[in-house]
């Protein structure tokens, strides 16, 4: 049962039950949707900036405990970050979720996702909001949609 409690750590269960920043932004400057057609998981990320720095970030959607907690923790950890920082963090999170190693990076609470790598079928769930946020940053146009498939 150790793998299971590695995957569903208390922090993850908590954030999946009471997600933080779960609301739309009134005037988002960027937004993007993530969609997992395999299970129907859907997440929308809303972003507002001050210069290059994320001033406000929120999300809405439906999905499994892993994708919901990942989105919730993402919104907490990205406030105040620059675009370049977000992209660097994306690579570190991706490495963490696929290998279980943080390689010296300080990922804060996001470190709870190390257990996901033992569940290859669930990496997509955990990465979904991250893919959406990067799509929002890269897409100059409005509201792109990324898919896990």
């Amino acid at each position: 049962m150790n793998d299971l409690s590695d995957l569903y750590q208390e922090v993850i269960l908590d954030h999946s039950r009471s997600p933080r920043n779960y609301r739309p932004l009134e005037a988002p400057q960027r937004q993007a949707q993530g969609h997992n057609p395999l299970c129907g998981d859907q997440v929308t990320i809303y972003l507002a900036f001050e210069g290059d720095v994320i001033k406000d970030i929120s999300f809405q959607g439906s999905g499994c405990a892993i994708s919901k907690a990942s989105a919730s923790l993402l919104t907490e950890s990205l406030k105040g970050r620059s675009t370049a920082e977000v992209k660097r963090l994306f690579d570190q999170i991706h490495a963490l979720m696929t290998t279980g190693q943080s390689r010296g990076a300080d990922l804060g609470k996001m470190a709870v996702f190390a257990g996901v790598h033992k569940f290859p079928a669930r990496v997509k769930c955990a990465m979904l909001p991250w893919r959406a946020v990067v799509a929002a940053l890269e897409d100059e146009g409005r509201a792109p949609t990324v898919s896990t498939e």
Partner: peptide, 29 residues
């Protein structure tokens, strides 16, 4: 209150093989 993918992941840890998802029935779902 528990998503199908979470059900299937945890059931698997108990040795029980289930399926979770839309079962190739998206319009029906």
């Amino acid at each position: 209150d528990v998503h199908a993918h979470d059900v299937v992941t945890v059931a698997d840890q108990f040795g029980v093989a289930l399926r979770g998802g839309h079962h190739c029935n998206q319009p029906l779902m």
